[in-house]
Write a protein that binds this DNA or RNA. Sequence first.
RNA 1: CGGGGCGUGGCCCAGCCUGGUAGGGCGCUUGGUUUGGGACCAAGAGGCCGGCGGUUCGAAUCCGCCCGCCCCGACCA
Length: 482
Amino acid sequence: MEDKEFAKELPKKHEDISRWYTDVIAKAELADYWLVRGFMVIRPYGYALWENMTALLDARFKATGHKNAYFPLLLPESLLVKEAQHVEGFAPQVAWVTEAGTEPLEERLAVRPTSEAIFGTMYSKWIQSWRDLPMLINQWCSVVRWEKRTLPFLRTTEFLWQEGHTAHRTEEDGVEETMRMLEVYRDFVEAELAIPVVKGRKSESEKFPGAVDTYTIEALLPDGRALQSATSHHLGQNFARAFNITFQDLDGERRHVWTTSWGLSTRTVGAVIMVHGDDSGLILPPRIAPVQVIIVPIHGKDADEPALREAVDKVSSALSPRFRVEADWSDKRPGWKFNEWEMRGVPIRLELGPRDLRARQVTLVRRDDLERKKQPVPWDGLEARVAAELEAVQGALFQRALQFRAANTRRVTSGEEFRRVMEGPRGFILADWCGDAACEARIKDETGATVRCLPLDTEAAKGPCTWCGRPGQAQALFARAY
RNA sequence: CGGGGCGUGGCCCAGCCUGGUAGGGCGCUUGGUUUGGGACCAAGAGGCCGGCGGUUCGAAUCCGCCCGCCCCGACCA
């Protein structure tokens, strides 16, 4: 009964998750549509969220020895086509610049869909000796891949991301880097975004165009579909050969370098929205929430305005050195503010009214608490309590997501069972698989599911292929994909 | 790119069938009373009805084409 009126404005998450998703993005002011289909404006609140994510991820890149740089937006077609698999994979999605002002260009320029060709070109100039290796560079930028069907954050034509590009002396070094960065992503997504992921290797058909091996972290979204949340590619010497990246080794021999690339995009913002949100709107993990604590002042009948302001300032300044805290002094009424900040997913609300003033306390409410329990907390020791509650919210969100995934991951041993799961609850399916691309295509045709990855931590296949009965090569994680 | 739906002040929508010169709710502005789960009163501002063309004395309304958005499918971080 309480907020029927308000709830009507947002569809129930479990009843219409597509509408819920796009509506919550609009209402929480994360993003808005641009005039060109597939492009979006990331609004200040959404961008603050992304900035918090990038800061935490960037720190991990720095800690693993990488440096940031910036490479150009456009590249000549002749560069893009140097690696055959690469160009074939990206051709359908590339946007082209063909004119400058009124003059046609003699060679059309591709808007980067990714920057392997760009980095490769420069690396061939910069790398001469084994002493130049490893070369460990990352860039934060946007890329363009033309999309047929788009969705804010989860699938936009232009998206923000980072792409790391590294070059190494030996294959082992390259593989090690690939796995190191995959682990960086896992740690980042699980610890900061509170989203559990499965680490795995992509099948041949899902591999990055031009890669020897693609590794991925896969998250499960509430509608039972999988989201590739980050990828790390071992590129072998494919790009080194295509772009002539060579060095003189210790033994005097000239050799091709081994390269890697790895990326994480604004798509993960979509995952955060989807995984944690509820019927009242966003729920943001405290580590990345633009506002971690919102203070709502409440004027009473016998309002002592100066005393209220003084108390809010006191609470605010006690918390602000350590937390991202804001006080909402707008002239909306308290109920309106409660709903508004819940929509925006702020992890902790502190109410401060006449009763609290008298008792020298605040009333604390956690966003992840469906009951909206109002907990009185004395001013003394507030900082420690808030720290503990934020940690608790972070942990609770991860546990909730972990439970959902566990409840929706099914070990399947027959084609019939496979079909039933995909027609019903969907989710992750673990099944023995022969590894054959044709078999994979058949599974996709008949169930909509694809091989998300071959999980790194599950044992090899125990039995024959669940689908075709031929000898099982590996245990694969299947799901419908975003 | 196929199938379906929808385009009317900032937002949600009525009006269209049966043509006659645009209306409601929310929001916004100003003033006042309010403030512990989306307050109330009063006075205001704001729209060439997605675009182009056609029919007509007259088009938001009828016809054609185009564009955009949403949902569902094939391709993708």
